[in-house]
């Protein structure tokens, strides 16, 4: 499979490295409007580079387009790729609204191409293991659930697009949509959402959100996300079940901790801890490997457009609740 990536920012860079680890898959070209990113891509990977997706499509013979541009540009790029008959992998969140997401799903269906979406948390082993344990029934029924994500600080990116609500959807759509997708995958549909955010009350780069969820099966959920810089990025969850607790804390379960001493020697300040938990195959490579297989064999990926749209719906309901101060009931249809 011949792959082209559009958008060589944080995710484009990560995906580019992953494609090199996937058999029978070749990263052929990269499109980015920034010349310095194109130069970097050419230097790091043996690829040709273009300013736009259209330029890349007209010059290269590609099977797959990986869309890693900012969220507000997803629809335009997915539709161009689909019209060109290419399978599309789109970074999460799929879209900023249900209508926008539905249009993308429809465009891919109409063109007969496979659409996959990067809800990579489903490929993180701790989350996969939690889902397996819950589904095994060993813990009994889930009563309440809590998730946490953040602490790594506000993301810096092209034109500061994360800071523009109309471009990124803020933290609710960009960050904790991971947890909305994971919880829905594990516990089923969400019925009701009530949410509070510092958005509009405080500096938007320090957004912090608390969400109350009620699932169709009765589970009561509490989702927390923050852009605050608390030293290191972290994730947590707790499933409280009638037969026990299942908990995760990424800071606790880090298998490798390194402390840089040099800065202490030079500045007298303590070094910064950089926790990581290395795996034989990283989750990004796993998600792209799965997608490439699906594209090759014409199968629906685990997280197709419809699945991703359900997560967008929860995030959009939370945004609406934040705005109106009222609980929002999710209507399916």
């Amino acid at each position: 499979m011949r792959v082209g990536i559009v958008g060589f920012g944080t995710m484009g860079t990560t995906h580019a490295a992953s494609y090199q680890r996937i058999a029978d898959c070749e990263l052929v070209a990269i499109a980015d409007i920034r010349p310095e990113r194109r130069a970097l891509a050419e230097e790091q990977h043996d690829v040709r580079s273009y300013a736009t997706l259209r330029d890349m499509l007209s010059a290269e013979a590609l099977d797959v387009i990986d869309v890693c541009v900012p969220t507000f540009l997803h629809r335009e790029h997915v539709e161009i790729a689909a019209e060109a008959g290419k399978h599309v992998f789109c970074e999460k969140p799929l879209a900023r609204s249900r209508a926008e997401g539905q249009a993308m799903v429809d465009a891919c269906r109409k063109a007969g191409v496979i659409l996959g979406v990067g809800h990579v948390v489903r490929f993180f082993p701790e989350y996969q293991r939690a889902k397996a344990v819950i589904e095994s029934g060993q813990m009994g029924n889930v009563g309440t659930v809590y998730t946490y994500r953040g602490g790594g600080g506000f993301p810096t990116a092209w034109q500061d697009w994360y800071a523009r609500y109309e471009w990124s959807g803020g933290l609710t759509l960009d960050l904790i949509i991971h947890d909305f997708d994971f919880l829905r995958w594990t516990l089923g549909e969400v019925e009701r959402v009530f949410a509070k955010s510092t958005w509009g009350r405080e500096n938007n780069r320090m957004e912090h959100v608390l969400v109350s969820l009620r699932f169709a099966n009765g589970v009561i959920g509490n989702v927390e996300g923050t852009w605050l810089d608390l030293g290191t990025f972290g994730t947590k969850f707790e499933f409280a079940c009638d037969e026990g607790l299942l908990t995760h804390d990424s800071h606790w379960s880090s298998a490798l901790k390194s402390y840089q001493l040099q800065s202490a020697a030079h500045t007298g300040k303590p070094g910064v801890a950089v926790p990581e938990s290395p795996m034989a195959i990283d989750p990004y490579t796993l998600e792209l490997k799965h997608f490439i297989e699906c594209a090759r064999e014409g199968k629906e990926p685990m997280i197709n457009g419809e699945e991703a749209l359900r997560a967008v719906e929860i995030a959009v309901a939370a945004q609406e609740s934040i705005k109106t101060g009222k609980p929002v009931r999710l209507e399916r249809g």
């Binding site: 309440t144 809590y146 009530f194 509070k196 608390l210 927390e224």
Partner: peptide, 25 residues
């Protein structure tokens, strides 16, 4: 009842969630 989640608005402008559940085994 044995579990719940409260979402509060405070007069000082802050908000809060509070989980009072009897959810420990």
């Amino acid at each position: 009842d044995d579990c719940g989640l409260l979402t509060l608005e405070l007069t000082n402008g802050a908000f809060m969630t509070l989980d009072p559940s009897w959810s420990r085994p």
